[in-house]
Write a protein that binds this DNA or RNA. Structure first.
Lengths: 315, 315
DNA sequence: GTCGAGCCATAGGCCCAACCTATGGTTTCA
DNA sequence: TGAAACCATAGGTTGGGCCTATGGCTCGAC
């Protein structure tokens, strides 16, 4: 079998025209290099050196082989360097899951944070739709993600809450904003809910369902839209009201629905932001970096559940 | 230490997303591949696969490494193929020593023979001056050569005579061609000798010296030139006479000195063509090929010393 | 919920490859 | 002719690579 070690010995021998010199240069004993060369000649089925009195002389086959051998070793070096560059965040891609609301809170800023520290890396935030995120997390394609979850429970997943964000009722009708909105009033309202997450996992939706469960009702959503911006715009047009995280309301209302306002729910409800990854996984440095930066971003806006909490790698 | 085997296992595992499948494909047991991957991860200091429930999933580092690993293996394959191509005479260079007179006898035809059989090879006939040939033979840079030698003796060299060629006296003066030329007349003549070979080794020169030794004289050469063609031209101009191999005379006189002719020496003298290589050398297929073809060419013109003799490899 | 199938990790054992030191043969040079 | 340089061989040790057997985990089916 042809090996890199054989090629290394070959090149050294070729360069110095001597097995002894090559062995010295490589830090081996002379018979070791001799053996490697012989093995290489055997596997290739050709003679590479003529043993002549003092030293050895490369044959024309050796002349032919040399540039190829150099190419091989150069390729190996390139591979090694590429990996080291990725390892030290000089280059490479960092994939991280983050969807819907969480992205709204930390998306652009998070990428800016990473690029500021490691200009060479490419950041891939997965989570246009959250089916993807849940699936890729389960399949292992995605190492970790920052999600808004309602219940801390997922099969084989470790969920680490980092912040919570109050849900508020938004409306273009000032009359509906005078008092905190109860479950009763909520059940009567015309609501638009954005399906920012996979419906089964949708944090806001689950939170509302839980709230309404006590009154024995299900949330009536007359309108369903994909993204939260559209929902807010519809509220601005007075076509419906909605329930969204407070930070999103403060960020989106002035821009998309200036005539609308928000009011608390009663009892107050929260969405929980949490880091999710497979239980038992050892997190890579890249994932740890993303978790730390994303947590910081989110905690700057939402209410920290643990001071600067960082997910600890589980063994 | 990074090895080709590790990269092979890595690529198979990456492709199939499974250590077991990779092992099957490579013909190994599953723990063996597992061990290779672990060793590779250790030498690179990175995690390449996440072990997730069913199968393994490549990390982004693995994504980065993959094209480099493929490049390495492709380079190895290219090297192997290049060597095999040379081995089977599809390509590569064949170096062979052949100087002066020998080249005149077999040069172009020999190259034609090789190219007819192996169109891809490049033939390098060394021997513009024979210092080079003797030196490169001694140093091992040159595996074998076809030379015109006078005495069958050389330090550590194996000399195999294949043909002999009579030396003739050429002159533009018909009077000098009426009778065979004796050593006595030779000593009185104005001679031009071409230094087609290194003077110490020059076959013709040595032959003449040996011939004149009996009369106690040294050859008087008034004119010395580098190549035999110039010598013949000078003879054609009537400026001097010369002694050259008969085949060369027949080939060159009509073209370069049409008014000149040749006559035998008395006693008759011969140059000997012989294959020379280092004693104890195992001759490569390429060298054996060249020896066979060159011998055939020379024996077609000169007088064979052994029927279609081919130098036998000495152990 | 439970059971079987699939997959990876670990353990233990075997064997060859790689390395070493010591030594002999050959060539080269003084 | 002897010393130095260099390669080949011999013999011994070690570690890497491969195997089988087995255990633990996950996933999917009944």
């Amino acid at each position: 079998m042809l090996s890199l070690h054989q090629l290394t010995c070959f090149l050294a021998t070729y360069e110095y025209g001597s097995l002894t010199r090559a062995a010295e240069e490589l830090g081996y004993a002379q018979p070791s290099v001799s053996e490697q060369i012989r093995a290489l000649e055997k596997t290739l089925g050709v003679q590479l050196f003529r043993r002549v009195g003092r030293g050895v002389v490369p044959t024309t086959v050796a002349d032919t082989l040399r540039p190829y051998a150099e190419q091989v070793l150069a390729s190996v070096d390139a591979a090694r360097q590429a990996v080291q560059a990725v390892k030290s965040f000089e280059t490479g891609t960092i994939r991280f899951g983050m969807f819907g609301i969480a992205r709204l809170y930390a998306g652009a800023g998070l990428i800016a944070d990473v690029l500021a520290r490691y200009p060479g890396v490419r950041v891939e935030l997965v989570g246009q739709n959250s089916t993807e995120v849940a699936d890729e997390l389960r399949r292992g394609r995605l190492e970790a993600a920052m999600l808004a979850v309602s219940t801390v429970s997922a099969e084989g997943m470790t969920v680490t809450p980092v912040a919570r964000e109050e849900l508020v009722y938004i409306s273009a009708d000032p009359a509906r904003l005078e008092l905190p909105v109860t479950a009763h009033r909520l059940a009567l309202a015309t609501l638009v809910l954005s399906e920012t997450t996979y419906s089964e996992v949708d944090a806001t939706r689950n939170t509302l369902r839980q709230m309404l469960h006590e009154t024995g009702r299900n949330p009536q959503t007359r309108i369903e839209v994909e993204d939260i911006e559209t929902a807010v715009e519809l509220v601005g047009l007075g076509l419906a009201d909605s329930v969204i995280p407070k930070g999103a309301a403060e960020q989106l209302l002035p821009r998309l629905a200036p005539n609308a306002g928000w009011v608390q729910l009663r009892p107050r409800q929260w969405d929980t932001f949490a880091v999710v990854h497979r239980s038992g996984a050892v997190l890579s440095p890249a994932a740890q970096l993303m978790i730390e930066l994303a947590t910081r971003r989110i905690q700057d806006i939402a209410e920290p559940l643990r001071p600067r909490a960082v997910a600890r790698p589980t063994t």
